[in-house]
């Protein structure tokens, strides 16, 4: 089962994005703070990271920088999802090392597709959602 790390402190938002990711066949690993998110990003080796920018403690930009600086985390795509929509936000987010950037609100019906297109990842096998939950441990060698 392919993993996606979602770093998001807002439970509602986490819940919403999880619907979309699980439906697409991913196992969602939640992290409620930036620090935890950085740790999990390096230990769990997710396919990509969904990053909220406005976080308690270190913010999403700092978390992205730390992941990028870590020796093993250099390549994992980081997708920022934020409600910052003012001029210049985009530049700061890309500068921090994020691979793609989406503004809230997200459309749960299309968000995963858009993420795939933005970071050049192909979707897990179709229909994975139906058998995803029970067969979780099998995929790990």
């Amino acid at each position: 089962m392919k993993k996606v790390l979602v770093i998001e402190d807002n439970k509602d938002n986490l819940r919403l994005i999880s619907y979309s990711l699980k439906r697409a066949g991913y196992q969602v690993i939640p992290a409620e703070s930036g620090e935890l998110g950085v740790e999990l990003a390096l230990s769990e080796l997710p396919v990509f990271v969904v990053m909220d920018i406005n976080l308690p403690g270190i913010d999403g930009l700092e978390a992205s920088r730390r992941i990028r600086c870590a020796p093993r985390g250099g390549e994992v795509p980081i997708v920022a999802i934020t409600s910052f929509a003012m001029y210049g936000d985009r530049d700061r987010i890309i500068e921090a090392g994020c691979s793609a950037y989406f503004e809230k609100p997200i459309d749960p019906l299309t968000i995963v597709e858009k993420i795939h297109a933005a970071i050049g990842v192909t979707a897990p096998a179709p229909g994975a959602a139906e058998r995803a939950e029970p067969s979780e441990p099998r995929e790990t060698p």
């Binding site: 807002n10 938002n13 919403l16 503004e103 809230k104 609100p105 997200i106 459309d107 749960p108």
Partner: peptide, 11 residues
């Protein structure tokens, strides 16, 4: 406003 809107539109 975006955060609650995210929930309203999303859910």
């Amino acid at each position: 406003l975006r955060t609650p809107l995210n929930s309203i539109i999303g859910f």
